[in-house]
Amino acid sequence: MRMKLAATVAIALASLPLVASADGEVNIYSYRQAYLLEPLLKAFEEKTGIDTNVVFAKQGLAERLAREGRNSPADVVMTVDISRLNELVERDLVQGVDSKVLEDNIPENLRHPDGKWFALTTRGRLIFVSKERVKEGEITTYEQLADDKWDNRICTRSGKHPYNIALISSMIAHHGVAETEKWLAGVKDNLARRPQGGDRDQIKAIAEGVCDVSIGNSYYYGNMLQDENQREFAEKVRLVFPNAEGRGTHINISGISLTKSAPNRENAIKLMEFLSSPEAQRIYAEANTEYPANPEVKVTGLVAEWGEIHPDDLSLQKIAENREAAVKMVDRVNYDGE
């Protein structure tokens, strides 16, 4: 058995061919980093005897699939964020999978209605607050981010980042365009600085006193706690699971799709089913401090210490459908501008 890993960037994609149609193999295009997949694929190989070949990239995999067309050696694509998964569907680069195993393991709201993508892990879009300057219970919902009391106290990354677009899309689903735009304009008015950096940078900004409140994915906080160079920043913030007493906390996903070409289709589906299994779900979620998509798998370790998450059960497909409206809204309120 062998697992081939190739770290790449977009400009190098064309120079990294995969072997297509070899018996006993499955070929993977992945946006997820090598250290996350290695223990999973090793377990899959040991269980099935099927070899795995992987190409990693930060961007450009959809373009590569489109360029390769029916000659693509890729069997599956593994990526993060519902917008990236939906892009594969919209560009007709993936096919549906009819699998009772996947349907039993992955809840309906975390998979495409025609089986064109399936969630593998989830992550909450949380509110982070200063332990020193924000009292417990002082903010409990996304809606409260627009309250005047947070004027000049909020930091976020770009409103156009996929993670924020997904959150805005969920707000549109719950409140409609007009109310969500009013809310987003209110959040912008409360910003302490122009949107910049990533989710970790917002936590660091709270620790440094630049702002008191930020929005970020749960796993970034977990990763910072495990990094000796960033732990001091993470320890100065407190987690808030927004809307826990109402509709639930907005979640996003990492997921997998079967490509249109899939020369090793049977092996690919076996991999997809394995990744949805309790065994793999535990490995996958713990490796990146995420939540399992399979509801039968309980969180453990660091994530369990944060307390139970009550996720919004809104269909991720509905969020994907609101993406264009969310992007236009960010422009209309000039969220990223001065």
Rank of each mutant, 00 (worst) to 15 (best):
I206M: 06
I206R: 01
I206F: 06
I206W: 02
A207M: 06
E208M: 12
G209Y: 04
G209L: 11
C211S: 04
C211T: 05
V213F: 06
V213T: 05
V213M: 05
V213W: 03
V213N: 00
V213H: 02
S214T: 12
S214E: 01
S214D: 02
I215T: 05
I215K: 00
G216K: 02
G216R: 01
G216Y: 01
G216M: 06
G216F: 03
N217D: 12
N217Q: 14
N217W: 09
S218F: 09
Y219S: 05
Y219I: 10
Y219E: 03
Y220I: 14
Y221A: 08
Y221M: 11
Y221G: 03
Y221K: 06
Y221E: 02
G222T: 04
G222S: 04
N223F: 13
N223V: 12
N223M: 15
N223C: 13
M224L: 12
M224I: 12
M224N: 04
M224H: 03
M224Q: 04
M224K: 05
L225N: 00
L225Y: 00
Q226P: 03
Q226H: 12
Q226S: 14
D227L: 09
D227A: 09
E228M: 14
E228I: 12
N229S: 13
N229C: 08
N229P: 03
N229M: 13
Q230A: 15
Q230I: 14
Q230L: 13
R231N: 09
R231E: 11
E232C: 09
E235G: 07
E235N: 11
K236Q: 07
R238P: 02
R238V: 11
R238M: 13
V240E: 03
V240C: 08
F241M: 14
F241E: 09
P242Q: 10
N243E: 15
N243D: 15
N243L: 12
N243Y: 08
